[in-house]
């Protein structure tokens, strides 16, 4: 991690009760906060009928649990989870492609659920278990989903691949023997340009048979 200023006392409160605030939702709230000075402790304001803390617009200290490890950084509240992963923590497996929750190249797990890291604010990912593609290998050994991708040639340029691998893992964890409908639904949020879907389907079939 690059920006490893020590976290001071006033780490923002964890805000589990408002999990999953979208970027758009956040921007609405953030509009209220323009005049907030660069202080650490968040001001509480009324927004959308409830009291919410307002952070920023300057950098605020944040703390994350990614792949079981703690990461700290001072970030502006407008920084997305994807940009934090890629630019602060050098976890570049998740890719920025559409940047609008359309293509799934940035897919990571948050508390074991697939999320689009491009459209989730980093500040909202605090207190959650974030899992990225970098964590799937056990030492030198590929995860069964990754191994099946390799054997079935399910990547070409490979830019969509990490997102697909995570989405497939989440789908297989939930449906060890996925039906065509499970596959359709589980991978509906990911897009590929080179055309590797045939290999991905075969990879899923292989893992479904062998087990993950």
């Amino acid at each position: 991690m690059r920006d490893d200023d020590p976290i001071h006392d006033d780490v923002p409160e964890k805000t589990e009760e408002r999990s999953g605030v979208s970027r758009r939702g956040f921007l609405k709230i953030a509009g209220v906060s323009v005049a907030v000075p660069l202080v650490a402790r968040p001001e509480m304001v009324w927004a959308a009928g409830e009291q919410v803390p307002v952070h920023g617009p300057g950098k605020v200290p944040m703390e994350f649990t990614i792949n079981g490890k703690k990461y700290k950084a001072n970030l502006e509240p407008r920084v997305t989870l994807l940009d934090a992963l890629r630019d602060q923590f050098d976890l570049t497996g998740a890719k920025r492609v559409c940047d609008r929750a359309e293509c799934g190249a940035c897919t990571v797990l948050m508390d074991n659920k697939t999320v689009y890291a491009c459209s989730l604010l980093a500040i909202e990912a605090q207190g959650k278990q974030i899992t990225t593609v970098e964590s799937l290998m056990q030492g030198e050994k590929l995860h069964p989903v990754q191994q099946a991708f390799v054997e079935n040639d399910a990547s070409q340029c490979g830019f969509c691949t990490p997102g697909f691998v995570i989405a497939c893992k989440a789908m297989i964890d939930k449906h060890p023997n996925p039906s065509p409908e499970d596959i359709r639904h589980g991978l509906a949020g990911n897009l590929c340009r080179c055309g590797t879907y045939d290999g991905i389907k075969k990879a899923i079939a292989q893992v479904g048979q062998k087990g993950a």
């Binding site: 570049t92 991708f149 040639d153 990547s155 691949t161 990490p162």
Partner: peptide, 21 residues
């Protein structure tokens, strides 16, 4: 023959220009 750079790609280790920091 299986593609040699697949393990790098499926594990997020393959470095693209966009990943260079």
């Amino acid at each position: 023959i299986t593609r040699v750079d697949s393990p790098l790609k499926v594990s997020g280790q393959a470095q693209y220009t966009y990943d260079v920091h």
